[in-house]
Every structure is written in C-alpha cells, then in structure tokens.
Amino acid sequence: MTASPTPAEPSDQELVRRTQAGDPGAFDQLVLRYESRMRVTIYGVLLNHEDTEDALVETFFKAYRNLASFQGKSEFSTWLYRIAKNTALNALRKLRRRPQGVVPLEGEEAFNEGHLFIDESLSSDTRRQLENKELQNKLNECLALLSEDHRTVVTLFDIQELSHAEIAKIMGCSEGTVRSRLFYAHKQLQSQLQRYLRSQ
C-alpha cells in the first residue's frame, strides 16, 4: 500500500522523519504523493466534490498536527487512510445536520457534465463519453443508497485496489467483515445497476 517512489524519490519513512525533524517541505511531498488517493477515498464516502475538498484539507491538517506522535508502527499510508476515512465520516455527520441534506446529487450531476468524469482512455468517441458520464451519475446514485462503511469498502477495494488485509487495517475490522461488506455492496450495486446496464 505504500507509495512506490522512484529511486530518486525519498521513501514515506524518510519524508515522515524529515517532517518530524522540522522540514515542512517534506510534508508537502507527502501531500503531493497521497492527495489523489485520499481525495478518491473521501469522495467515496461524501459523494460531493466541494465537501471532499474541505475534508481533504482537514485530513492533511490533522496528519500534520499529529505527525509528531506517529511512531511508524503501521505504514504511513495506512495511518493516513484511517485519518481520511474518519474525517470523511465526521464530515458526513455534520452534513446530515445541515438543512439541504447530505448528498446533493443534482449538483454533482451538473458537475459531472463538465470534464471530470470523462476518461480519455476509456472513451474514444463522444457517445461513449456521454454513456460514461451517465454511468458515473448512476453509480453515485447507487453508492448513495449504501451505508458509509459499505461505500468506503467499495472505494478502497474497487477504486484503490487495496487488499482485504489492508482495508481491514484501515477500517479497524476483521478481513471477514471486509469480505462480507464487499459482498453485500457488490450485490446491491449489481441489483441497482442491472436495469440501467440492460438498457445500454
């Protein structure tokens, strides 16, 4: 799960050590190395770009503030994923209390109509790109029906491609629990998306 730096790049451990020694530039490198993965993880829980950005900043802020107490007993990435997951869940609890609700999917659809969900490697023509955007919006609708724990497992397994053991460490549960959550989430997604996929 550790980011694989090229030979010229320092390891996570080295960057953590340098940050703890007072080199803020080292922490910037860690942020640049992990922000994309943390963003995907947080989005997987919140399903909203705006809230994701706020929670992402908060995740790295918490990591920076608590890095002095990080002893390296787990991998830095596992520690960071755990902070991201907890920050996202806290944000979700706060969002539930706001008047407009948790996931304004209409806003996300408008956002997805832009450029972000167009993956050039998957879509070679405009029609395919439109289908891809539709599928992404439909996916968001289905993911929103799952619990946050199930969404997190799907994000870590299907998007981040982490192992069951790694996900178990991040989620603080057994591998068996991860497998059963994944089984349930996949079943739900399949069932929800079945009609949409048949119509394509």
Binding site: D28, V31, L32, E35, S36, R37, R39, V40, Y43, E53, L56, V57, F60, L116, F117, D119, S121, L122, N132, L135, Q136, L139, V154, F157, D158, I159, Q160, E161, F183, H186, K187, L189, Q190, L193, L197, Q200
Partner: peptide, 26 residues
C-alpha cells in the same frame, strides 16, 4: 471485484484517473 460487471468496475477505476487531474490542496 470480478463480481461487478466489467463496465461498472471500469467506471469505478476511472475515478482514480479523474481525481488525479484535480488541482492540489497544498
């Protein structure tokens, strides 16, 4: 993940590439 239809699996993995384009929060 093989229990998910391939197009769904691909759509999920596409999110990784999508988020890689977002500007940094630094």
């Amino acid at each position: 993940s093989s229990s998910l239809p391939p197009e769904v699996r691909d759509a999920l993995r596409a999110r990784r590439a999508m988020f890689a384009q977002s500007p940094s929060v630094l």
